[in-house]
Design a protein around this nucleic acid. Structure first.
Length: 460
RNA sequence: GGCCCCAUCAUCUAAUGGUUAGGAUUCCAGAUUUUCAUUCUGGCCAUACGAGUUCGAAUCUCGUUGGGGUCACCA
């Protein structure tokens, strides 16, 4: 049984790096028919936990990830942590330290002055006397004094830490009785039965401390996979400053969950030359031991490319459904299929797609100056009038090919090139010089609207 | 600064010690398209540096440089 977990601290939203580790954890659990758990690390009470958890679940829902079981909140597990801290106290593997904050600070400053590593001096490690009056104790765990701790990491390999370099008897419970991070993480992961910890490699240097806790409590140590960070273009850890870090912003910007997940899974992981991965393929192929060791840079171009790929290959029903979020209602539009087929080749995002749709459906409010100059010449008026006549007198028009036929006839009659009619017509219909095929646009808006737009240009 | 991690095109990445170092994105050019976009074809561009091991190194070892992470009664 493989059990993974995603354990964010409640920051108010799910960020893109978090989604990646969540995705990888999810994939590995599902691939093994295991469990993917969600735990909120809210031992810092000053933050708003509930809203944050909801935001994460909302984002999960949007991309289609689902956690198993109930959401565990560390804030509601305090009794458990106290129990385990007490166990360590009873077995002599932890002890109370009565050093005040001021004393600790002073010690630290001395050490810094001597250019030594700031480190607790174990003064209460074997203390048996009477504790100082009126002072709340913290609980410190007895860390090994010498030797080394090796993290067997599925991504980085065996990473050896020299105990003297990095450890001291660190605090597992504060003076107010609340537990600290490295203690609760180890206790929770063990108690929740987590077998595979997949998380950012910024946690690698915490891992020896957690191993100390595992060992003291006699818990089995899980497999670790520390996945490299996602960097921005400056090569630094991705932060709010880099723009869209909130996963739900991607929905706003018109990205599809499929594209986002595909993009994230290919950051630091690959499967031969394959670029496009459906969820089913990810589930079939993903293995955390194939994750690269080096950090990767977040680049939007590839995301855009993936997004346009998924839009192109999406059914019109689904597209129609998604576009409603971006304010476009097409369910009852009779030329829906023609419209969507024409535009899904052209849009990188759903937002772009919505814009393109409106450019067709809504009569241009004004004509682009440059387009007028280039596309609406001396003879254009007469040509458009002739075309309008032909439209009125022709047979019933429905498909793009019907309109195309009328254009061909007019062009032949007037003995002009296609461009002679195409450019002014485009200005009339779209207000500018680029856009989908004119026959397609006319088929979508119909004869009456086409005539109205031609008229509007002639009279402008 | 101590400790730890990392290093292949601009970017994401591939390459049992033996390949003309491959693919993808971006960019550029051509074809298609009445336009723009799409699509197709082609092109530019990389093993950070220096030693060593080896018949042979992107790959193994050491060093250098560069980058990142982490060092709390935060998580």
């Amino acid at each position: 049984m493989v059990v993974t977990r995603f354990a964010p601290s409640p920051t108010g939203y799910l960020h893109i790096g978090g989604l990646r580790t969540a995705l990888l954890s999810y994939l590995w659990a599902r691939r093994n028919n295991g469990k993917f758990l969600l735990r909120i690390e809210d031992t810092d009470f000053s933050r708003n936990d509930e809203a944050a958890a909801l935001a994460i679940v909302e984002a999960f829902k949007w991309v289609g990830l689902e956690h198993d079981g109930v959401i565990e909140y560390q804030s509601s597990r305090l009794a458990i942590y106290q129990e385990y801290a007490q166990k360590l106290l009873d077995s002599g593997k932890a002890y109370k330290c009565y050093m005040s904050r001021e004393e600790l600070d002073a010690l630290r400053e001395e050490q810094m002055a001597r250019k030594e590593r700031a480190k607790y001096d174990n003064r209460y490690r074997d203390f048996t006397g009477t504790p100082p009056e009126g002072r709340e104790a913290v609980i410190r765990i007895k860390a090994p004094l010498e030797g080394s701790i090796t993290v067997h990491d599925g991504v980085k390999g065996d990473v050896v830490f020299n105990v003297e370099d990095i450890l001291d008897d660190f605090i597992i419970a504060r003076a107010d009785g609340t537990p600290t991070y490295n203690f609760v993480v180890a206790v929770d992961d063990a108690l929740m039965g987590v077998t595979d910890v997949i998380r950012g490699d910024d946690h690698l240097s915490n891992t020896p401390k957690q191993i100390v806790v595992y060992n003291a409590l006699g818990f089995a140590i899980p497999r670790f996979f520390h996945v490299p960070m996602i960097h921005n273009h400056e090569g630094k850890k991705l932060s709010k400053r880099d723009g869209a870090t909130d996963v739900m912003m991607y929905k706003e910007m018109g990205y599809t969950p499929e594209a986002l997940l595909n993009f994230l899974v290919r950051l630091g992981w690959s499967h031969g030359d394959q670029e496009i991965f459906s969820m089913a393929e990810m589930l079939e192929m993903f293995d955390p031991s194939d994750i690269n060791r080096s950090a990767s840079v977040y680049n939007v171009e590839k995301l855009d490319w993936l997004n346009s790929h998924y839009i192109k290959n999406m059914s019109n029903d689904k597209l129609c459904d998604l576009l409603e979020f971006h304010g476009v209602m097409l369910v009852s539009h009779d030329k829906r299929e023609i419209l969507l087929d024409a535009l899904k080749e052209r849009a990188k995002t759903l937002v772009e797609m919505a814009t393109l749709i409106n450019e067709i459906l809504v009569r241009p409010a004004l004509f682009d100056e440059a387009a007028l100059k280039k596309g609406y010449k001396e003879d254009s008026k007469a040509i458009l009038e002739a075309f309008a006549e032909a439209l009125k007198n022709g047979t019933e028009l429905h498909l793009p090919s019907d309109y195309h036929h009328v254009m061909e006839v007019v062009v032949a009659q007037l003995e002009i090139g296609f461009g002679k009619i195409g450019q002014p017509l485009r200005v009339a219909l779209m207000g500018k010089l680029s856009g989908p095929g004119l026959d397609t646009v006319m088929a979508i808006i119909g004869v009456d609207e086409t005539l109205a737009r031609i008229d509007a240009l002639i009279k402008h």
